[in-house]
Computed example of a mutant assay.
Amino acid sequence: MTRSRTQTRSLQGAVVVALVLMLFEEGAAADLARGRNIALRWCSQCHIVASGQSTGSDSVPTFVEIGESEHFNQARLSRFLASPPHSRMPDLSLTRTEIADLVAYIKAQHR
């Protein structure tokens, strides 16, 4: 069965819209308090994750730096947390909801 170009474009457009809505919905449902708790539990030994925190590694960026980074938008940060590309980051095995919460918390950090 062959599809016309119009049908193919319509299908592609529907898929793109569905993906955008899923990302928007996931971001909208993010819980900053849960994200902060995840950050304090899993990330604070290496990263400065909250104001007032005095310990962390000098060799990794703070959550403020990550949150303000143009390189790490929400989608890229979510992908990074889902599968860290290097061995220094532990495999956190976070759910998509936990990742969304953590990303929302990181992106909410400002100087």
Rank of each mutant, 00 (worst) to 15 (best):
P61S: 13
E98W: 02
D101V: 00
A108F: 00
G13Y: 06
N37P: 08
D58A: 13
M1Y: 14
L21Y: 06
V15D: 14
A28S: 15
M1F: 14
L94E: 01
R3A: 11
L92W: 07
C43S: 04
A104N: 02
G27R: 14
A14T: 12
R41Q: 15
A28H: 13
T6M: 03
F63M: 06
K107F: 08
L19D: 05
Q109I: 07
A18M: 12
L40E: 07
M22H: 09
A18T: 12
V15T: 13
I48C: 13
F72I: 05
S57D: 09
V16E: 08
I38A: 01
R79P: 00
V49A: 10
S78T: 07
S57Q: 08
I66Q: 02
V49G: 14
G27K: 13
Q7N: 11
L92S: 02
N37R: 11
G13M: 10
E65N: 11
G52E: 07
R76N: 08
H47A: 05
L21A: 14
S83I: 00
T95V: 11
E70A: 15
R36K: 15
A29V: 13
S78I: 03
C43T: 08
P85S: 00
L77P: 02
Q7E: 14
A33Q: 14
T97M: 08
K107P: 01
V60P: 05
A108M: 05
V103A: 09
A29W: 01
V49M: 03
M22T: 15
T62I: 09
S93Q: 15
V60Y: 07
H71C: 09
E98Y: 00
R88V: 08
A104K: 05
H110E: 12
S87V: 06
K107R: 08
D58V: 10
R34C: 14
P61H: 11
I106P: 10
A104S: 08
I66T: 12
A39E: 09
V60M: 09
I99V: 08
R36Y: 10
H86W: 04
